[in-house]
Design a protein around this nucleic acid. Sequence first.
DNA 1: ACAATAGTGTCTGTAAGACAGTATTGG
DNA 2: CCAATACTGTCTTACAGACACTATTGT
Lengths: 240, 240
Amino acid sequence: MKKVSSALGRSIPERPLVTVDVAIFTVLEDQLQVLLVRRPEGATEPFPGRWALPGGFVDVARDATLIDCARRKLEEKTGVAASYLEQLGSWGGADRDPRGWSTTHAYFALIPAPDPKARGASESTWLAADEAAGKRLAFDHGLILAAALERLRGKVEYTSLPAFLLPEPFTLPELQRTYELVLGRPLDKSAFRKRMLDGEFLEQAGVVQGGYGRSAMGYRVRDRERPTVFPRTFRSGEAL
Amino acid sequence: MKKVSSALGRSIPERPLVTVDVAIFTVLEDQLQVLLVRRPEGATEPFPGRWALPGGFVDVARDATLIDCARRKLEEKTGVAASYLEQLGSWGGADRDPRGWSTTHAYFALIPAPDPKARGASESTWLAADEAAGKRLAFDHGLILAAALERLRGKVEYTSLPAFLLPEPFTLPELQRTYELVLGRPLDKSAFRKRMLDGEFLEQAGVVQGGYGRSAMGYRVRDRERPTVFPRTFRSGEAL
DNA sequence: ACAATAGTGTCTGTAAGACAGTATTGG
DNA sequence: CCAATACTGTCTTACAGACACTATTGT
């Protein structure tokens, strides 16, 4: 085993690179979108000019923990704090980065639609999630994005996650629309409303004027720290 | 940002330690048990003499990927391959290891009850999972074990995971017993059998003689690569 | 024959989906 | 008053849980 000598004079193995990447989702233009950044150009850079998930090296001087690091990356790129942030998993191996054996701790984040004029001048863009998943991304970020989408779509079947994609207060029809965008299929209005209101994770926040037609009740989530888990998935009896 | 110079002559940040730990579960003596190893003694060792999850540094020369590393640790400690291995998550921070900023990639594994006489002479032991979770383990392994138990118990509510804790072929009463041990509560026999057989993830493997009473049908899982996900959780309507 | 264990049938309650109905708003 | 949207009620169906029943084996 190849070893290097540590400051303490004991033998510590050679250390892999340690990075954090974040798949940041929002709903924009009636689409589920994900934030990508362009890798810097340059002969010494890995994957120059390719699209990648926002992320980078852990900074042992600034980041107390991995999730602090993820929060930092997120705020550097979007300027906002995530309304939802969870760990997706980690990937690591000898071949995923030409600079050496590397690991990444991947997170996935949900934020309400950002102010369109606040789009930073930096080399980043919001892209429809499925379109982004079709591109050849840097590193193994294609795999990571696919895993993030699968996790998001999976959890949307039985949790209140889409509530974190909307600015508050939101109406139940807006929330239903968000579920439908993520899942890619329509949901029954009556069943949807029953599930949301029986869950008791929403609180009323006054009536909201829509453009036309009857105005709707606005809602806020009661506990923004964790999503609600429903006892069943949508459309449980479809596969017959 | 503190940096060290790399072989390529470019500036690469200081690298955290990278380890892999595995929470290995089995059913032994009618209990859900987990494998712990004792940390080596010595003044320069972190947490000397404490119980810990099996694991250690990634070996960049031997391990092609993180999961390969997890498989290696598992086989070194148990002598067998896991029947189920999934990533649990990763933990990392400045304070979890006195040797410096460190990360661990945690996995959780299920194996059938090991041969009792094959218990290695090494400093390791099977312990009832809840008892182990009550101990003060090395590093943040208490947290990791708690997360593993929560994940296992959570998934057992709606997946076929317990099938990976049994040697094949097994009978439905044995499988039900395993579910009950993990969940810590009894399940209805009829509902249980309906769920298992309707799922079509088992195949018959000939009649098995029990000690007494009617003999039972033996089963094997059809696809040992992935567990079956049931559309609902057990006892969905309990909270009334 | 009896005890012990494996396996089945039947009833009931819950809750999701389908869908049609009512309510409230702006033009 | 009409169109558009928000919201509610009722019916049906699927299925998990409860529990009693039958089946098969060893002693």
